[in-house]
Design a binder for these strands. Structure first.
Length: 883
RNA sequence: GGGCUGAUAGCUCAGUUGGGAGAGCAUCGGCCUUACAAGCCGAGGGUCACAGGUUCGAGCCCUGUUCAGCCCA
């Protein structure tokens, strides 16, 4: 005999099934199996990562898809793996070294990298372990890491091919430099924040003594690297000054005044200082006018030799000193408050410096074209669709990608400089000699590649590329990529470009972009703000299934999720509800000899037919929602079915049958009960894997695990609209009686009589054959139905369509209460009748609206009018009694 | 400056081809009715941001405004 605890206790349940699933290799995808496939690669979490709510959300949605497809019988691969996260990981290990009083330079490159691998071995698996706890059905036998030998080979293959095609080059350009991480960053890796600052107006005297040009700048320290002042040729204020010379304050260098239409005459004084080595726009102007570039800072953002007297100062110290000196020399006209966007390193939040430097780049436009086309043509669908605009916007204005990083942890650039001829040799494997002159004096580039260079290959590198493996053939292109919008450019766009280039095909058919999880106030969760809700804590406190269901239920498309703990609490209660419904089932299945398979039986009740029809409808709703990535709709459909239909109605309605002495009828209902419960558990399994497995295993079923049990399918023949209509009528009666009971303050323990007066013979018949339902659920003393039912003078009544539900209340009647109740109802009905009358007497409505809409409204109007009459009659009797 | 998204009950939000404004939580009243008090039954509560327009009919479509958030330059 199976008995369940009174409350669901998730802890040991979760642990048990995780081990069981693993032992039976249920998440393993078989590349040799024929038939339909579904594949999906996890957005690889950083090895430095710990599961946060964003991961929990992202992976819950993926797991729902994976489990759903697997149960549908589709050959399903959910590819796991982690990202080496160059800068982030290097920072973590450097911090550890610092605590030991060491730097990475103290260790040297080789030893440092060893140390990172060591760290990875010890802590890099945390996030994977946490994903398992979340229930993620990833195929761990295929676990990959972006620095694996295989994936590194893919990286070298791509680098060399692109280089050979001329799509990778090295050159001097303005890049974003992080003085803390000591590396270049791509444009995307810079976060711009609005910051209060100042606009300094500085006097640049003309050499000929004829006054001065006033320039405005937010970064006065960069003036040391000025090589010109620019004006707009159309600016009347500066007419004739083009070609003259000004004297750079402090350093007294002579600068030409150049004319360039880039200069915005409306901004400031219309004169722009040009610093090609420290500003991307100035760099462009410098190129146009063949200006020299003077770099005045070192890699640590301290002023260098070019800065003259300011040499050795940090950039912000230099700013202060320069402002003071300008003031002293009366060259500072004014300082205005000015808010402007300041770029920060996305890893350490240090203010980045635009910096002239020799770096490697990927020429991106030729790769972007087909990637744009893939989305425009619909080969790749981005869901929700509005993200496509953002994608196009970025892709059409894409700039070359700076891929070299001056750090040690990552894929070292496979390019070697010849000590003899100074040329590059770029090769897949370490070359024995220079391919230009044959010299063996080769030195490999010390830089490593941007982490996103390897992530961009993820959908095919994880499947074995450049080897033509069976897995690659089977599972590429993948079906869905599920991620947040924050890495749409970083990752998604680049995967599309790489997939098309190297696989000759799109990397995935759908991109599902989900929202961001925020705190209850809508703030981004962050450790510094202290508003983080830790998924692991929530899982521990409420159960993993409760957290997962909460996330799914809030996953409405295109809207951020404000998560508060009480919402998880609510879905914990839902778990418990399901648990107790199952508990009820087990209590009533003790003598049951059948299985979960539905048996055809003449002995099924109206409630049995009804719940089977409702189940079938729910199956359709869940499939439809999941196909459209509407996770919240699927979750809501399940929630409503389980709580409001199965628990609130079906269980209550079937109690009498389950206690029946008629063993044939009892068996038929037991069969429906267990069938519906099992189907429901399967439907719910992708959302709540643990509790569903726990209950399912106790049922009389076939199979190893619910994880591989067949997902219920919609069957149009199972729709039973007659049962639904009939039971709806029964529910209407019960609701009417309950309403009267509630409004008239009749205790639930008090059994009341009920009369139903109706001329509708079908309604009469159903009410009579279903009398036992009404008697039990409305807690009746007795029930009388028919056209000739006599309505006692002292009674409460409710008017339904085609029937009046009457509760005789001799001795219990509170006429005042009943009058209030009826008047309220009457008011509502009258309001609606006026609205409908107006509508129906409007000739253009009757003329132009579709006939079925008009018919519906006419019918409603008739119904309401009858109801109004009856309510009026009832009200009159009350008034008489009160008089 | 360009673009995107949102504004619906006290709170958080659903509302998919335009045709009866919904859920959860919170509130109020009544219940330990033998699966569940993490529960059951009943009730109250909204000019769908504002102003126009299209339509027989608009929360939904169009235009404008205000406010909020995000992305890019």
């Amino acid at each position: 005999m199976i008995q369940l605890d009174k409350q669901y206790q998730p802890h040991d349940v979760e642990k048990r099934w995780i081990e069981y699933w693993d032992k039976h290799r249920l998440a393993h995808a078989d590349e040799t199996r024929d038939g339909e496939t579904f594949s999906m690669a996890i957005p690889p979490p950083n090895i430095t990562g710990s599961l946060h709510m964003g991961h929990a959300f992202n992976n819950t949605l993926q797991d729902i898809m994976a489990r759903w497809q697997r149960m549908r019988g589709v050959n399903t691969l959910w590819q796991p793996g982690t990202d080496h996260a160059g800068i982030a990981t290097q920072n973590v290990v450097e911090r550890q070294l610092k605590a030991e009083g060491k730097s990475r330079q103290d260790l040297g490159r080789e030893k440092f990298i060893e140390r990172v691998w060591q760290w990875k071995k010890e802590s890099g698996g945390n996030i994977n372990h946490q994903l398992v706890q979340l229930g993620s059905s990833l195929d761990w036998e295929r676990d990959r890491f972006t620095m694996d030998e295989g994936l590194s080979r893919a990286v070298r293959e791509v680098f060399v091919s692109l280089y050979e095609e001329g799509l990778i080059y090295k050159g001097d350009y303005i890049i974003n430099w992080c003085p803390r991480c000591h590396t270049a960053l791509s444009d995307l890796e810079v976060e711009h924040q609005e910051k209060p600052g100042h606009l300094y107006h500085i006097k640049y005297p003309l050499k000929d003594g004829d006054g001065a040009l006033i320039v405005a700048t937010t970064r006065p320290e960069t003036m040391l690297g000025d090589t010109a002042v620019a004006i707009n040729p159309e600016d009347p204020r500066h007419k004739g000054k083009g070609g003259k010379t000004v004297i750079l304050p402090l350093l007294k260098r002579e600068l030409p005044i150049i004319e360039d239409s880039y200069v915005d005459a409306e901004f400031g004084t219309g004169a722009l200082k040009v610093t090609p080595a420290h500003d991307p726009n100035d760099f462009e102007i410098g190129k146009r006018h063949q200006l020299p570039s003077i770099n005045v800072m070192g890699p640590d953002a301290r002023m260098n030799d070019e800065a003259g007297p300011y040499k050795g100062l940090d950039r912000f110290e230099a700013r202060k000193a320069i402002v003071e000196d300008l003031k002293a020399q009366d060259l500072l006209v004014k300082i205005e408050d000015h808010t402007h966007k300041v770029g920060h390193c996305y890893r350490c939040h240090t203010v980045v410096e635009p910096y002239l430097s020799k770096q490697w780049f990927v020429k991106t436009q030729p790769l972007a074209k087909p990637a744009i086309e893939a989305v425009r043509s619909g080969k790749i669908k981005i869901v929700p669709k509005f993200w496509e605009n953002t994608y196009f916007e970025w892709m059409e204005n894409i700039r070359d990608w700076c891929i070299s990083r001056q750090i040690w942890w990552g894929h070292q650039i496979p390019a070697w400089t010849c000590g003899t001829c100074n040329e590059f040799t770029v090769a897949r494997e370490t070359p024995p000699a220079c391919q230009h002159c044959g010299s063996t004096e080769l030195v490999q580039e010390s830089d490593v590649l941007d982490t996103w260079f390897s992530s961009a290959l993820w959908p095919f590198s994880t499947l074995g590329w450049p080897e033509q493996t069976e897995s690659l053939k089977k599972f590429y292109p993948t079906s869905v990529l599920c991620t947040g919008f924050d890495i749409l450019f970083f990752w998604v766009a680049r995967m599309i470009m790489r997939g098309l280039k190297f696989m000759g095909d799109i990397p995935f058919h759908h991109v599902y972009i989900h929202a961001l999880i925020r705190d209850a106030e809508g703030q981004k969760m962050s450790k510094t703000k202290g508003n983080v809700i830790d998924p692991l804590v929530m899982m521990d406190q409420y159960g993993t299934d409760a957290l997962r269901f909460t996330l799914a239920a809030f996953a409405a498309q295109g809207r951020d999720i404000k998560l508060a703990e009480d919402r998880i609490d609510g879905y914990r209660n839902f778990c418990n509800k399901l648990w107790n419904a199952s508990r009820f089932a087990f209590m009533n299945l003790e003598d049951y000899t059948g299985t979960c398979a539905l048996e055809t039986s003449k002995h099924q009740s109206l409630a049995d037919h009804w719940i089977l029809s409702r189940l079938n409808r729910t199956v359709a709703d869940v499939h439809q929602a999941l196909e459209a990535f509407r996770f919240n709709d699927a979750a809501t459909a399940l929630y409503k079915f389980i709580w409001n239909e199965f628990c609130d109605w079906y269980i209550e309605l079937s109690k009498s049958r389950l206690n029946s002495q008629n063993s044939v009828e009892k068996y038929a209902t037991q069969n429906v009960l267990v069938h519906v419960l099992e189907a429901t558990l399967k439907l719910l399994h992708p959302f709540m894997p643990f509790i569903t497995e726990e209950i399912w295993q106790k049922l009389p079923k076939d199979g190893t695990s619910i994880m591989t049990a067949p997902y219920p399918e919609f069957d149009p023949h199972k729709e039973d609209s007659e049962a639904e209509t009939h039971l709806q009528w029964v529910m209407d009666i019960i609701n009417a009686a309950r309403n009267i009971r509630g409004e008239m303050n009749l205790k639930p323990s008090l059994k009341i009589p009920l009369r139903i007066k109706t001329d509708d013979s079908e309604k009469e018949l159903i009410a009579n054959t279903s009398a036992h339902y009404v008697i039990e659920l409305a807690r009746l003393e007795d029930l009388e139905v028919g056209p000739s039912v006599v309505k006692p003078k002292v009674s409460a009544s409710s008017i339904l369509s085609g029937a009046e539900v009457i509760v005789p209340l001799a001795g219990l009647m509170d006429f005042g209460e009943e009058k209030k109740r009826v008047e309220k109802e009457l008011k509502k009905v009258e309001k609606e009748i006026i609205f409908l009358s107006k509508k129906l007497s409007n000739p253009s409505f009757v003329d132009k609206a579709p006939p079925e809409v008009i018919e519906k409204d006419r019918h409603k109007h008739k119904d309401l009018s009858e109801k109004q009459t009856k309510l009026q009659v009832h009200l009159n009797t009350i008034d008489q009694a009160l008089a």
